[in-house]
Design a protein around this nucleic acid. Structure first.
Lengths: 211, 211
DNA sequence: ATGCTTTTTTACCAATTGGTAAAGATACGA
DNA sequence: TCGTATCTTTACCAATTGGTAAAAAAGCAT
């Protein structure tokens, strides 16, 4: 009688049946596919329903609406996306910690290109739905990391760099391989992209950061 | 009697009246605004008409349809976008030529953020309309430039880099400031973005490329 | 002014969109 | 196996979408 799925669940899932778990999963995966390809406004519920193998009304049984699906997707994404930055260890070797971050970001771009594109789409369109999220979660995390990098620089463990711009450059170069895949694919044989990118970005940032 | 504007003009404008020139300009500018914000599928003719200060049917008097506007915009853009790469001078000083390219790309990202986002949107969505254009125009240009860079490296004038990945990194880092402006704006005071980016990218690529 | 062309508006479509109501089918515990 | 709660389908909407037909209004050369 309760009909949890779509209803604005205040505390979110108290319990979810196996069917609910499976279908919500299918829907979110289908939505990731469609949203990452066409952006929020360009995606349609029909496309998502088709991709998920469910009827449109059935999808609206599990989610309150198109926006609900999109927001759920972005929320889930944020955690996974910020994790590598959180794992930068203040106690580790500065250069190796940052290089590990570069490599993890590149691997994520290669392993989760749809997620990268979903995020890119949202930011491109002015971050209308994820904006507050960025301010609340991303901003303090970047501040903390920038301060850490600055301390490392002051200690002489890294070459002097603007920490925030460095972070931007890492994001830009790694995500480029996912977000601009259609362009990269035209210009390079896709077999050599992976290893080539790894070696190149390693050299680029190692040279930049070695004192 | 001829009604040139929207009609599939084979050789394009033979002559265009002042009104045609003005209104086509207005429409393309409005369309750039809307397409760059919402992508092709997310943009509507009504929005474009509104932004242009013209009625929807009037817009369809000047262009064959939504797609025609989009393609026209992308065609115009490609020339401007590829110009800096074309201007890399094989006779100039290798390092300074590439640094000049970096700075020009960054300036374009700052001066024409809408164009950058229009392009990013198109690529993100798999380059459905500009794909052939990329293969025909961009690919040979990149090949040529990559070969030039390789020659410079072989001559010992540049540090050894994968030329294509270097080009990707330049594109990624410079366009990031336009395409991800919504994110950059959350993380940095917008007054320091411009000069900071310039100094940072100069250091990044100079360090990377200096033999 | 006149007659012609170019431009703009008004009044429409047919298709697609996100979303709903309610009946029907299915699972599942007692 | 029965009853209840969960899940799914069918049959719809109202709003928006890209686009058209045709009349009305400007321009403009003579």
């Amino acid at each position: 009688m309760q009909h949890i799925p779509g209803d604005a669940a205040p505390t979110e899932d108290i319990t979810m049946s196996r069917i609910q778990l499976r279908n919500r999963g299918r829907i979110l995966d289908a939505a990731l596919e469609v949203f990452s390809k066409h952006g929020f406004r360009g995606a349609t519920l029909d496309q998502i329903a088709d991709e998920a193998g469910l009827s449109k009304p059935n999808i609206l049984y599990y989610f309150e609406g198109k926006e609900d699906i999109h927001v759920t997707l972005l929320d889930q994404l944020m955690d996974r996306w910020l994790a590598p930055l959180r794992e930068v260890d203040p106690e580790g070797d500065p250069l190796e910690e940052l290089m590990r971050y570069v490599h993890r970001k590149l691997e994520m771009s290669q392993e989760f290109p749809r997620e990268s594109r979903l995020f890119a789409n949202e930011i491109l369109q002015g971050a209308p739905r994820i904006g507050p999220h960025l301010k609340r979660d991303l901003h303090p995390l970047v501040e903390r990391t920038a301060a850490l990098i600055q301390r490392w620089i002051d200690a002489g463990a890294l070459a002097p760099v603007d920490p925030r711009h460095l972070i931007f450059s890492i994001w830009a170069t790694t995500q480029h391989y996912a977000d601009f895949e259609a362009q990269v694919g035209v210009l390079m044989d896709s077999t050599e992209v992976h290893s080539g990118a790894r070696a190149h970005l390693d050299a680029l940032f190692r040279r930049m950061l070695t004192p």
